[in-house]
């Protein structure tokens, strides 16, 4: 790979990195796992003057999971592969669905959750998954720390609320509020033409079941718009209703018009909408089975 010339810096702490990035100017870029930035540099589609490598900042790679199940904290530099193997992923299968299906083994061993969220690629896997839960991004910048809700963090394609020099420190995901006896289940399915490429479409579903009734639900689509799309119409079709074939199909059908996909080599816009519908249906079914305590292994659809 032959990128254009750039200066390489190694930060000892996130605070130092933030200062460096601010001082080096807007053509400086932070380097986490490099799974988006490095290919762009290789193709000379990105030409940063400076790279500030975060890989040597200590203490940013962890998955902390309180036993009461309420909260999971991801260090920004936690690799996808570590998340896939974590106890949190065993407890919340939707995390495993996502982490274990990102790219291929090499990508999962290098790529980080913080980098993925900060990149805000329209086809990224993490954002739709995290959005189905209550997720906050803890940021650190030249002006100090702040916490931004993920739904306010992603502003547009490749655009986040991060200010100049600002970096992601931690991602905090919480289960939505629920009563005792209510059970939560989630699932994420992406359809990808092959392992290494971004999804053609993806669907993330989180259900809160009270008995057979869907008390609360969040449904997000990935890769079919500039940002992850919450399909509230699909959620409304389920909320407060028993999960039956009819209600699930109604919800899936409502998801059809949720996205605004662009045609490309992955598929036509019409197909992506149809695909999203199918994925929503499957994700609801799996999330429901998981909420009922079933172990369900999910594999992405490869085609």
């Amino acid at each position: 790979m032959h990128p254009g010339p750039f200066r390489y810096h190694r930060a000892a702490s996130l605070e130092e990195a933030a200062v460096m990035l601010q001082q080096l100017g807007e053509d400086a870029r932070p380097l986490a796992g490099g799974q988006s930035l490095v290919p762009l540099m290789k193709l000379r589609l990105a030409g940063p003057t400076d790279l500030v490598d975060l890989a040597f900042v200590p203490g940013l790679s962890y998955v902390r999971h309180e036993d009461d199940g309420g909260e999971i904290r991801f260090g920004a530099l936690t690799r996808h592969a570590e998340i896939a193997d974590s106890g949190a992923a065993a407890r919340f299968p939707i995390l495993h669905d996502c982490a274990a299906g990102i790219g291929d083994v090499q990508v999962r061993n290098r790529g980080t959750i913080g980098g993925s969220v900060a990149e805000a690629d329209p086809s990224g896997d993490w954002a739709p998954v995290l959005l189905t839960h209550v997720t906050e991004i803890r940021c650190v910048g030249p002006g100090g720390e702040r916490t931004v809700a993920l739904r306010d963090f992603i502003l547009d394609a490749y655009t986040t609320a991060l200010g100049p020099g600002e970096l992601v420190r931690e991602i905090v995901m919480r289960a939505p509020p629920h009563e005792d006896g209510e059970r939560i289940g989630g699932a994420y399915i992406a359809a990808k033409r092959c392992a290494q490429v971004y999804a053609t479409a993806s669907a993330a579903v989180r259900l809160t079941l009270a008995g057979d009734v869907c008390r609360d639900v969040a449904i997000y689509l990935g890769a079919v718009a500039l940002t992850p799309v919450e399909v509230t119409a699909a959620a409304e079709a389920l909320r407060g209703r028993a999960l039956t074939r009819e209600t699930i199909e109604a919800a899936a059908d409502a998801a059809r018009s949720g996205g605004d996909p662009q045609p490309d080599m992955r598929g036509s816009a019409e197909y992506k909408c149809a695909l999203a519908t199918a994925l929503v249906k499957r994700a609801i079914e799996i999330a429901a089975r998981r909420a009922r305590g079933e172990q369900v292994e999910v594999s992405h659809e490869y085609a």
């Binding site: 092959c194 490429v197 490869y302």
Partner: peptide
């Protein structure tokens, strides 16, 4: 190796060309 009407190759990287892999 699909082209659009203006003659742009739409599959100039493996992300779009999708060479077959063991998974497929």
């Amino acid at each position: 190796c699909r082209y659009d009407e203006a003659g742009n190759l739409l599959a100039s990287t493996f992300s779009d060309y999708i060479p077959i892999t063991a998974l497929n």
